[in-house]
Design a protein around this nucleic acid. Structure first.
Length: 430
DNA sequence: ATTGCCGGGGG
DNA sequence: CCCCCGGCAAT
């Protein structure tokens, strides 16, 4: 599976009559915020990626995306590489030329911080590619969903054939491993192969369900932190944190369905390691949120995206599995995303555009210290499949306004001492 | 080119 | 200590 960014597809631009791959765009694209790409049979090259040759079938799927990932996610197209090589075979096995629309999991909105730099860093990017068996017809949706979901700050529920390394949210799909049975599986009928069971189950869970009670590794203790501005309350249960958010911050929830899921946007799961583990736990608890800048009303009333990002950072960044666990099988990426929500029905594609956190985010393009990202390189060793390798750390410059920007060079006398001395600004902290 | 700020140095 | 600035890295 490969995930491509299409830099020439602007976030707010619906696809034209033809996608960049040359495929006609379905009427679904009339729905705002939806990128639909579909089955160009047998494309061999991808525009802008002349070095990437796609052999066999390529089937793209539609991805319902949201404004919240505006600059990045809408430009993603997910499609499947099928080495089987026969377009007809792929079409028949898929049973459709255009697969269903994928709603972005609600939990995508868990963290009110997104590092805009990632847009640059990740684009263009490929996340993963595998040589999948033809019967795994839903892997594209799954992968898309996985990636979308893994963009959340919260790790996906580890389950079945999807393994999560530590709490990093690093997803690894192993089609050969069997998934534990579940009522969902049984209700689905017996034709599915083990990987499909796990994948379908996971897909449903990723796409449509409230987060299931999460299975935790023994060494992990889950907690949930409220991300509401200046709150930061930590509770140990989803129910608790949701109730807290609903009652304290959302004031009971005025409009049923939407607000019911809206709590999801305002908490973020945190994990505490209770004992040494074979995989390196975070070396230290997340640093305390930085003290707000003096005299900044905005900052005083706003959440600290830095703290929430640090939270994510501490969960994810240092725990990527070695490349060997990633080879050919998984798509993974980490990114935090601002709140967003979508309706599956399409009729009420909802954009929650005015939350406090988002306003703050929009005004302060999220500062973050470092990012974690993945890249994919072609690998001969893996039989021609693309191989994902991960972990590039990079320090990102704080985007907080500093004295120089606030007062201007002409009013240097107003700068804080540190800025005047070219030291780290003391007035407008990160 | 601009910005943030570390490291170093002068007084 | 106060103050300044070269230089580097990020943007």
């Amino acid at each position: 599976f490969v995930i491509f960014s299409l830099p020439d597809m602007m976030p707010n631009t619906r696809l034209g009559k033809r996608s960049p791959f040359g495929a006609l765009v379905s009427p679904e694209t009339t729905r705002p915020g939806v990128v639909v790409a579909m089955g160009p049979q047998g494309i061999s090259r991808v525009r802008g990626h002349s070095d990437l040759k796609v052999r066999g079938n390529v089937r793209m799927i539609s991805v319902s995306s949201c404004w919240a990932l505006n600059t990045w996610l809408l430009s993603q197209v997910f499609f499947q590489c099928d080495d089987a090589g026969d377009p007809r075979a792929a079409n028949t096995s898929c049973g459709r030329s255009v697969s269903t629309c994928i709603d972005v999991p609600r939990r995508l909105g868990s963290a009110p911080s997104v590092c805009p730099s990632l847009v640059n860093i990740l684009s263009p990017m490929m996340l993963c590619c595998s040589r999948n068996a033809p019967q795994e017809v839903d892997m594209d949706e799954l992968t898309a969903a996985m990636v979308l979901s893994s963009l959340s700050c919260s790790p996906p529920p580890p389950q079945g054939s999807l393994s999560v390394s530590g709490s990093s949210g690093y997803w690894s799909v192993d089609p050969k491993s069997s998934a534990p049975s579940s009522p969902t599986d049984e209700a689905r009928g017996g034709s599915a192969t083990p990987p499909d069971e796990g994948l379908d189950m996971e897909l449903d869970q990723v796409l449509f369900e409230e987060p299931a009670p999460r299975k935790r590794r023994n060494s992990l203790k889950a907690a949930f932190r409220c991300l509401w501005p200046a709150c930061g309350k930590v509770l140990t249960s989803v129910v608790g944190i949701k109730r807290h958010i609903r009652t304290v911050h959302l004031h009971g929830g005025e409009h049923e369905r939407c607000s019911r899921s809206e709590e999801d946007f305002y908490y973020c799961e945190i994990n505490q390691w209770e004992e040494p583990h074979c995989q390196s736990p975070p070396s230290a608890p997340p640093p305390p949120p930085p003290s707000p800048p003096i005299g900044s009303a905005l900052s005083r009333s706003a959440p600290s995206p830095c703290s929430s990002f640090w939270q994510v950072q501490s969960e994810h960044s240092y725990q990527a599995p070695p490349p060997s666990q990633v080879v050919s099988q998984a798509a993974s990426c980490l990114l935090t995303a601002p709140p967003t929500t979508c309706s599956r029905q399409g009729a009420t594609f909802r954009v929650r555009s005015v939350s406090v956190g988002e306003q703050w985010l929009q005004q302060h393009s999220a500062p973050c210290r470092s990012v974690f990202l993945c890249s994919v390189v072609p690998s001969v060793a893996s039989g021609g499949a693309l191989t994902a390798v991960c972990l590039i750390f990079r320090r990102i410059r704080s985007e907080a306004k500093k004295c120089r920007k606030v007062y201007g060079i002409e009013h240097r006398e107003l700068w804080c001492t540190a800025c005047r001395w070219k030291k780290a600004c003391q007035r407008f902290l990160d």
